[in-house]
């Protein structure tokens, strides 16, 4: 008797060796485990430089942050190899989570302090300019996603780029604590179609299991999955709650 084949859930990690400075593995592990715990066959495809293998199979891409030296190496490869298949995959409904450097590279451009312009791949309607002061610290956001429960997202930011959203992108949420996109308009991250950009790491998804599920579900809709079975998230949400408490503490001071 043939064994019933499990439904696949595939994560594509863009440049796992070069763009992983902020504990990004936490995001990957969270996506994979939460799919696995629900009976999916969770698969990870590492998309290093020069490869475009199996990009059409990916359900959720992850694109993290790197150091300047590594980011420069990634930049050339992104334009040469990854851009067309990535755009194709997103048109087909794949999701993208881009954090920090990855968030910036998916936008129109990054402008350095000297005015030099590095065009991004313009997948999202955002642009970034270098700022002087680095934004470092806890972030708490009231998310713009109706189905999220709880409504809050927590993370840690560490960036000097100031990102501004154009009309096609909407903010991921409103900052309750932290500087967010640019430190001036009170907004954090962006949502455009199935692409989610943010400055929050920490890692982001482990303490925001509801956001992880949102990404998994959004990507699996095209495969006919519209509901994910519930999991026991008490450990994750307790950690989430601790950050909320700290934030309240920080504000009341």
């Amino acid at each position: 008797m043939p064994r019933s084949k499990k439904q696949a859930f595939t994560v594509g990690w863009l440049y796992p060796d070069l763009m992983n400075i902020y504990g990004d593995r936490g995001n990957i592990l969270t996506l994979l485990k939460r799919a696995e715990w629900r009976g999916f066959e969770a698969k990870l495809i590492e998309l290093g430089r020069g490869t475009t293998q199996q990009m059409e199979e990916v359900d959720v891409f992850f694109f993290g942050g790197g150091q300047d030296r590594e980011q420069a190496l990634v930049y050339a490869d992104l334009l040469e190899f990854k851009q067309p298949p990535l755009e194709q995959a997103v048109r087909n409904g794949a999701g993208v989570l881009a954090v920090c450097g990855g968030y910036q590279l998916l936008g129109h451009y990054y402008q350095t302090a000297d005015g030099e312009l590095f065009p991004g791949i313009a997948m999202i309607d955002v642009k970034t300019e270098a700022g002087k002061r680095r934004f470092i610290g806890d972030v708490v956001v009231d998310a713009n996603i109706d189905t999220l429960n709880p409504k809050t997202l927590v993370g840690f930011e560490n960036h000097s780029g100031r990102t501004f959203l154009g009309p096609k992108a909407r903010p991921l949420g409103k900052t309750r604590l932290g500087s967010g996109n640019n430190g001036s308009d009170g907004m954090e991250g962006c949502l455009q179609g199935t692409v989610l950009g943010t400055y929050m790491h920490g890692s982001l998804l482990p303490k925001n299991p509801h956001l992880a599920d949102y990404l998994i579900r959004s990507a699996l809709i095209r495969r006919g999955v519209d509901e994910l079975s519930p999991l026991d998230d008490s450990v994750e949400l307790a950690a989430h709650e601790r950050i909320l408490q700290r934030a309240q503490h920080a504000q009341s001071r």
């Binding site: 992983n20 990004d24 560490n158 790491h201």
Partner: peptide, 9 residues
């Protein structure tokens, strides 16, 4: 270090 992301590495 105030950022604990590194525990995931």
């Amino acid at each position: 270090g105030t950022d604990v992301s590194w525990i995931w590495d």
